[in-house]
Amino acid sequence: MDFLEVVGSRRSIRIFKPWEQVEKEKIQRILEVVRLTTCPGNLQPWRAIVVERDKLSKEDRETLLACDNYQGAHVNAPVWIYWFADVEGSTADTFRTRVHDLVDLGALPTFYGWTHETIDSAIVKGETAPEGMPAIHSLIHGLPREAAEAVARQETVGACAVAVLAAVNEGLGTCLHMAASAEKTPDLHAVLNAPEGWVPVWCQLVGYPAESPDGGGQRPRLPFETLYYDGAYGKPFARNAEVVEKLEEEKLLQEEMPKPGRFEELKHLARMLGFPL
């Protein structure tokens, strides 16, 4: 599928075919895509544990579902990818090691000031980084654990956005779900045997959609002009109608919901899955 069509076709799919398993290759392809996504200092703090619902013991399945209040979509999705942020993956020390590598490989140009010495003096000693480099002396030096955790989380959230698109590209339905409420997080860790420093970010549900893959149309979005500005706040970024038209052709912009028949569809799906009508 073309990139714009993937973005345009992405919806949170909440109604899956519980009986149709997802091919293991497709899950691998999603994970491979995420591995290549962007992040600062090449930190890659995301981790994932892939869970096939029907391979869990009854007890473990119940525990994981209880972590999330037995949400409907969670119950009927065959694959649950638990995305975690590894705090160790975004400490000052990890950052330092990774940017050293980037310098050695020629990704970070020395003519912008990147050398092992400038990196070490900024991160370890807090000395001002030379102009041309980011202010890592203030950003990374003495980075507290809570800040490292925040960075790991935010980068993992970004990775999840890519994971969702990768699933759509495989013809799968997907959505991001809460992994566990705060008080149930230890249960989640116990069942998945997740290391302590891994913070649950999202549970990505994956399966074949039982609802129409277009999920009843594109979700309402805030007006373009209220989101984006040109030069400074107050002057909306002008939205060119021709560009919009082209994007409709390219299937980025699709029919908005609710499309006709949506409620009829939901009624039938409820009957199919045994939910009250």
């Binding site: 075919k17 519980p18 009986w19 149709e20 039982a210 039938h268 799906l269 009957r271 199919m272 899955l273 045994g274």
Partner: peptide
């Protein structure tokens, strides 16, 4: 399983 579900959906 699919046939059962679809049949149930359609009565």
């Amino acid at each position: 399983e699919e046939v059962r579900a679809v049949s149930r959906m359609l009565g």
